[in-house]
Design a protein around this nucleic acid. Structure first.
Lengths: 125, 125
DNA sequence: ATATAGCTTAGAGTGCACTATAACGCAAGG
DNA sequence: CCTTGCGTTATAGTGCACTCTAAGCTATAT
């Protein structure tokens, strides 16, 4: 139920450096400490990190994630947070369109290569 | 049929700085010059830039685009180029999966918000 | 003729997101 | 008792992809 920074790093794929950096940058709350002052990540912290990772990996900048995270424990901010997420969904859709367009362009180029390869192959028969 | 750097910038959305940078970095060939030494982009240059933009915007690093571009006029490299593009398609598929996963996670969070908003709204009736 | 607006170059600066270093502390195992 | 192996902090460095500056050169418009 509780995890050290090493375990959390392994579970999330984020380096220890990054975990400390995210905490300093207020992307995650101040993590609880044990008697030695070591960080103890809870299940809730892990879930939060997992969500952050999703939005981070799809391009939400640190600065926005920071704003979003700072509103986390204030229910008055729910509409604002909702709006931020809706905007990020628009962003994701835009990225998806770019990926599709790029995929199609590459398909076309590969098809051209294959026609060339087939044609030069036939010369050898 | 031919374009100045300003027109090319407008047509591609790349800044003039970036166009010169791409040329210096060999992502595009040495562009033809007019009597004044100004760059003249041909239709073919534009098409190449459009393709580069597609793969760049989907995350292919400059270093790889450079390798790819340098092979462009050598038909012996077609299989290598083909392989690079296939690998980039794998990359695009992976990105697509991440976008979908993130989209689903955001959907779920928005649904949570909406349940909260609905519940607190009902208290006011 | 001179201001404006375009172009050139080499090289410096920026912003982002990490990533690493230095210098240190503690506590359990051989 | 001291090495290993965690942890801490503040701060510096890295890599990428631009982005801009400085200094200068034309050609056309007023």
């Amino acid at each position: 139920m509780n995890y050290s920074i090493t375990e959390t790093s392994r579970l999330t794929g984020l380096s220890k450096y990054t975990l400390r950096y995210y905490e300093k940058e207020e992307l995650i709350p101040q993590i609880k400490r044990d008697s030695k002052g070591y960080r103890i990540y809870t299940q809730q912290d892990l879930e939060w990190l997992t969500f952050l990772l999703n939005i981070r990996q799809t391009g939400m900048p640190i600065s926005k994630i920071k704003k979003f995270s700072q509103m986390r424990f204030n229910t008055k901010t729910i509409l604002t947070r909702r709006q931020m997420l809706v905007e990020h969904q628009q962003n994701i859709l835009e990225q998806t369109r770019k990926l599709q367009k790029s995929m199609a362009a590459i398909d076309a180029k590969i098809a051209r290569y294959d026609r060339y390869l087939k044609a030069s192959d036939e010369l050898k028969e």
